[in-house]
Computed example of a mutant assay.
Amino acid sequence: MYLTRFRVNTGRSEGRRLLGSPHRVHGAVNASFPTPPSRDGSGPRVLWRVDRNTTSETLLYVVSPNRPDLTHLVEQAGWPASDEPGWTTFAYADFLSALHPNDIWGFRLTANPVHNVRHAYVKEGERTKRAAHRTPRHQMNWLLARQEKAGFEVVRKPVERQLLPEGDAYELIVRDQIPLQFRRTSEPARGSGDVQITKVTFDGRLRVTDPDLFRRTLTHGLGKAKAYGCGLMTLAPVRREGEG
Rank of each mutant, 00 (worst) to 15 (best):
R216L: 00
K224Y: 12
Y121D: 14
L180S: 08
G242M: 06
D210A: 01
D69Q: 08
E75F: 02
L73G: 04
E126M: 09
A189I: 02
A145E: 15
S97R: 12
H119S: 14
G204K: 03
F107P: 00
V174R: 04
P37W: 13
F202E: 01
L213E: 02
V174P: 03
R52M: 03
T88P: 00
F95R: 13
R161C: 10
H23Y: 14
N102D: 03
A236E: 10
A145M: 10
V29T: 08
E187M: 06
E126W: 12
V155K: 02
H23A: 13
V8T: 03
L70A: 05
P101F: 00
R215M: 03
D94G: 11
E241Y: 14
R240D: 11
G106L: 09
L96C: 08
R39G: 03
E124K: 14
M1C: 03
G191V: 04
T234K: 07
Y170S: 05
F182I: 10
E187D: 12
P34H: 07
I178S: 08
L143G: 04
F33C: 06
V29M: 10
N53F: 06
K129F: 13
F33N: 07
G106K: 07
P68D: 10
G15N: 08
D69G: 07
Q147F: 09
G223C: 08
D94A: 15
P44W: 05
A111C: 10
R108T: 15
V159I: 12
Q76P: 00
A132Y: 04
P44H: 06
D210C: 00
C230M: 15
H119N: 11
F90E: 10
P34N: 10
H133D: 09
R215K: 14
L163A: 15
T110P: 04
S42K: 13
L73W: 05
K129G: 01
R137C: 01
Y121H: 13
A150V: 01
S56K: 13
T58R: 02
T35K: 14
S186Y: 08
R183I: 01
V195I: 15
Q76W: 15
R156I: 00
P68C: 10
E57V: 14
G167Y: 08
L235Y: 02
M1A: 11
D203I: 06
D203T: 04
R240A: 12
V62K: 09
F107V: 01
S82M: 03
K129I: 15
G106D: 12
I178H: 11
G78L: 07
T217P: 01
R108L: 06
N30H: 12
T55I: 03
T135C: 06
P85N: 07
P113R: 09
K149P: 00
L213R: 12
A81H: 11
E75L: 15
G231E: 03
V200A: 06
R239L: 14
R134N: 08
F214W: 01
A225W: 09
V8M: 07
K157G: 02
S38H: 10
R127W: 02
R190P: 01
T219A: 09
G125M: 09
E166H: 11
K157P: 02
V50F: 08
T209D: 00
A81L: 09
P136I: 07
S97N: 11
F95K: 06
L180H: 09
E124G: 06
P101S: 08
P36N: 09
I173Y: 07
A93T: 13
P68W: 07
P22G: 10
F107A: 01
G223Y: 13
V25H: 07
L235C: 04
P237A: 13
R215W: 00
H138G: 01
L60Y: 05
V62N: 07
